[in-house]
């Protein structure tokens, strides 16, 4: 499975992605979890001690092509090797790779950015399941960050602003001929909320996750939902999401 979570800030991308990845890994898959949000929050919801690792600048080397500066993995480094060397091991066997935090307004992220892309480009196709948490909002590069994905899951709350963001993301994805784009209806409070999400975004809804105080409480404690409250309704809903996507994402 290769999934990227997108959506408005606060919609629940990190909470759901972290839980989703753990559920996959616990089922025996080799899972690489990617945090490409420069304001990372995924480590906490995954249950990885808050790290600030990212790929080192020297994971890539510069070269010139047609007078332009380009980057490739440094000689001898493969995507698989980079994951083994730099990704942090987390609970249930997940491997966690972070783009790295924004380091001030003048932070030059071009090297970690390219390293991130090159590692993903070089990862063998089907050995890994990939679960990514993309930056919030509709900022241009979400397609760049999410190139690895076979499925975009647009996380949407049943509010006008969130629906508007979901609609924009659906449009952006469609204009790029992205593989599969589905909505996840999060923080549902009323029975007709998933229908509102379907109507408001024009997307198929993969599944719905109820508004669950256990999510907020795990967040407040800085713990993974799966560790804090494994029997929470939101966990059950994420398990259903995993199952639903299994039958949707064409095996390659």
């Amino acid at each position: 499975m290769r999934v990227a979570f997108v959506g408005k800030g606060g919609a629940g991308k990190s909470s759901l992605a972290g839980t989703f990845a753990r559920v996959l890994a616990a089922a025996g898959e080799q899972v690489l979890v990617l945090d490409s949000d420069p304001m990372p929050g995924l480590a906490l919801s995954l249950g990885v001690p808050s790290v600030d690792t990212g790929l080192p600048d020297d994971a890539v080397e510069e070269y010139q092509e047609g007078g332009r500066r380009r980057y490739r993995l440094r000689s001898g480094l493969t995507g698989q090797g980079a994951v083994e060397q730099y990704a942090v091991a987390g609970p249930d066997g997940v491997r966690f790779l972070q783009l790295g935090k924004a380091r001030g307004p003048r932070w030059d992220n071009s090297r970690p950015h390219w390293a991130f892309q090159r590692v993903l480009d070089d990862l063998p196709g089907d050995d890994w399941s990939i679960v990514g948490d993309l930056p919030g909002g509709t900022r241009q590069p979400f397609m760049t960050w999410g190139r690895y994905a076979r499925t975009y899951l647009v996380v949407v709350e049943p509010t006008p602003a969130s629906l508007l963001s979901g609609r924009r993301l659906a449009r952006l994805a469609a204009s790029r001929g992205t593989p599969q784009v589905l909505a996840v209806a999060n923080k549902m409070r009323q029975p007709d909320d998933p229908d509102r999400v379907a109507a408001g975004t024009g997307l198929d809804v993969l599944g719905a996750v109820p508004f669950d105080p256990a999510v907020a409480e795990a967040d407040r404690q800085g713990r993974a939902l799966l560790d804090a409250e494994p029997a929470a309704p939101a966990v059950a809903a994420v398990r259903s999401l995993v199952e639903a996507l299994r039958s949707r994402e064409a095996p390659s």
């Binding site: 992220n109 950015h113 509709t138 900022r139 241009q140 590069p141 979400f142 397609m143 760049t144 960050w145 924009r168 952006l172 994805a173 204009s175 790029r176």
Partner: peptide, 11 residues
């Protein structure tokens, strides 16, 4: 400004 088209751009 709003993003209308996904153009490759700086991150």
């Amino acid at each position: 400004s709003a993003i209308q088209n996904p153009e490759p751009g700086c991150p």
